[in-house]
Amino acid sequence: MDPRDRFWRVTAPLGALAVLLTILVVGWSVEPARYQLGYAPEQPIPFSHRVHAGVNRIPCEYCHTNADRSRDATVPPLQTCMNCHQFMKLPDKALQEYIDKAVADRVKSDEPIAWKRVYHMPSYVFFDHRAHVNARVQCQSCHGPVETLDVQTRLMNMRMGRCLACHRDPTPYLPPGSPIKKGPTDCYACHR
């Protein structure tokens, strides 16, 4: 075979295939963990959003008080739990004992809880909760039906495409009659 012919028929296609395969294999296998859906780590306290937000219909912002005034919605201080738990006693005795130990004692001894982070943003993303909450985007639009979950689970696609899809056409996620027709799509809207 003519050496030039050999290059075009064998070497070049095989080489291109190898490059393509490498990209695909590497890309698929090293997907950052923050993209994994269904990630539900075991938390230090088996707190159930289903019981609190679902069964007892406590509004999200009762606990996540800063969602409308800070970038961070913030996990509530343990003291917030005691707003209710210091007065109410649960019929399930074992559970009540557990809460006394896991929550009430911790508040008394000022011992914080290290919750496992479920939704992880890379350091170059500056997401702002208050912009979304004050535009009246439902928490569930991004976080999924949290009120049905016993274990907090990552239900949101954390890719930028998901952000942009909504920013380009936010209407389905906004209350009817909202004047907002589009979100910012500048890079500096989130990256800085």
């Binding site: 963990a33 201080p77 343990l78 003291q79 000022d110 290290a114 919750w115 982070r117 992880h120």
Partner: peptide, 14 residues
């Protein structure tokens, strides 16, 4: 990168 690398530690009394 491991998914468990990060924790959130809120105040106990804010």
């Amino acid at each position: 990168g491991s998914p468990d690398q990060d924790t959130i530690v809120p105040y106990t009394k804010k």
